[in-house]
Amino acid sequence: MAHIKLRDDLFGITSLLDFRKETAAPLCELTQVLLRGESTLTEAERELIAAYVSSLNDCVFCSSAHTAATCALPGGQETGVKPMLTDIESLDITPKMKSLLQLAGKVQNGGNRVQQSDVDLAKESGATDLEVHDTVMIAALFNLYNRYVDGLATRRPEDPEFYKALGNRITTRGYKMPDDGYHALKVSSE
């Protein structure tokens, strides 16, 4: 049971966004800009950063949702990424993405863990200043989400089909708040 009274037909982050719409609005806007806005990183790559950081934070809900999202996006399926991924060495991704994930891992550990040499390594593998900025910002944002979702003990479905449906929803609709509020996810029809 969640630590506070939330709508019982919603799960995870959705139940929290519904609970406090004033804070949900800038959070959705921030996520939309970072994960769906114009970028030289693909949407699948940005979702992979979100999934990896969530896995390192042991947040099953966010890791499952963003793993499903990266797998539903062009270029994401073939990486063969599974929820709760913590070993990036075996992944079929570019050296640049590997170095950006390593950087995201440092950020997860603590902002002070990052050194100039970590950023230099990413830049030597071809990352731009903007890609470094956005990687750090996405990693930082999921350190927020993971704590928000688990810190209030939101409900988490066990059914893998739920996350597949949620992954499809966020790849097709993005993160903007729906005008008519949040609706329960119907797994069969998504």
Partner: peptide
Amino acid sequence: SDLDIHDTVLIAATFCMFNRYVDGLG
């Protein structure tokens, strides 16, 4: 209240983001 608890958790989580943004980019 529920709102006090919610806002405390979200402020703490938000500063885990801001702190990482600020120090993670030096």
